[in-house]
Design a protein around this nucleic acid. Sequence first.
DNA 1: CAGTGGTCTAGACCACATG
DNA 2: ATGTGGTCTAGACCACTGG
Lengths: 265, 265
Amino acid sequence: MPAVERAGAADKHALGSWLEEISATPLGEKSERAIWLQIYDRMRASVEDGQIGFGAQLPGEHQIADAFGVNRITLRRALARLQDEGYLVARKGVGIFVRPRPTRYTVASDQGFLASVDGAVADYSVRTLGIQREAATVMTADKLSISIGSEVIRLDRVRVWLNQPIYRTVKYFAAARFPQFEPAYAESQSVAAVFRAHGVAHFERVETRVSGGFATASDAEALDLTPKTPVLRTAASNVDPDGRPIEYSLGTWPLTTVELVFERP
Amino acid sequence: MPAVERAGAADKHALGSWLEEISATPLGEKSERAIWLQIYDRMRASVEDGQIGFGAQLPGEHQIADAFGVNRITLRRALARLQDEGYLVARKGVGIFVRPRPTRYTVASDQGFLASVDGAVADYSVRTLGIQREAATVMTADKLSISIGSEVIRLDRVRVWLNQPIYRTVKYFAAARFPQFEPAYAESQSVAAVFRAHGVAHFERVETRVSGGFATASDAEALDLTPKTPVLRTAASNVDPDGRPIEYSLGTWPLTTVELVFERP
DNA sequence: CAGTGGTCTAGACCACATG
DNA sequence: ATGTGGTCTAGACCACTGG
């Protein structure tokens, strides 16, 4: 299911003219700039200028390739790059869609999410993808200071901005520490509320690690991205006032749509 | 010029057998895993196991494709991914080389570089790519709290580990603040020493921003990467004890070879 | 079922670096 | 002059999704 409803039939007509417009001017010599890069330039500008709306479905690849007078493979290189940058999503068997993305998105990683966000708080929400109990792996056991195999709660969520997924987090908690996790979370959809319900009034982020990688299939599904697209990954640990770890959180962000800010307090 | 001298003629023979080995077992059904991914798996494992040494030149693309019995384009998808991950570098007109890369590389971004590094300090060094004076742009003027167009010093460097570039930084300083920058830097190759020579004994990092992008041509040259490969970018500001900005630093890191650590002090 | 994107082949020409 | 990687074409079949 698309994060944003796809454009209706009325927009389909508009897309025909969009394709005509964008492919009207002949492409330049390939010696100056590779053909696929020229197509990339035009399509990117077209998306950024809003000539084609968020959520709209593009014409088929064959059709676009024909309009530009290039081979489909050549066109696909341009599309691949636009997908890497989060402008487009390809859904196999369905089509290619314009992916809503902020031109730039800034979040201070050592604060709570809503406190650090630019713009209206009302535009943001959270979508819970899953919550389940499982056995602690070597990594989660280490990060939560519990024994391997003991029960952990795994919470899979996506932050949403204007109906568009911004980033995904998979959070781990020691089940023994939060026996009422599920009901408390169901009420509020808030981890901080679950903490409060268990007597943890404050918590603090002690460490954040940032690395890069490529979107897994589940990343792609959660973030409305094409699989294997490059992403930013974060790993963060939160501790309670006594310094005991209470949360280990893994984040995945589309590579080029976010800027993480770390400030010295 | 390669960062690591390429393997000599003796290794060329070894590479012939490397190719025979890696392509000996027939590829599986493409329905199970895409052919290019199967080739990617094998080549990556081969590089990680050290079956092919750092700096060695691979056989030509046509030759590798023939050995696997696949089309060159199919092979190139595997190579592209390996380049994205920093395992290989392609040099147009020359060949493809195994790129030395640490399996994982951890650096605490709010400390000095050498203080934060894993392993022997002696293995690390810095290579200065350029140092020049230019007019402050809107961005650098803002970050250094100086007026647009006033003189700034631009220092372009690469951090090197075991002869292999790890990351690139482009640093900006207000020229008025450091009149003796070039001679002081020439002596020590150290920015901290330049600061000390101008009476700045201590400085502090106040902010680091992390984002993602793709290697520019100069990034690729400095880091020994294939152009357009995904990278991590950092932007950091350092201030003197009075809180005045003295350095603005832009870093570029191969996407998957580094982990940045931000700790709460 | 028809249409989509994903993969693969078999060629070809080019710009580039090196000997 | 030769060999390299970079680009592009013209086909083809597949798996998947939706009506």
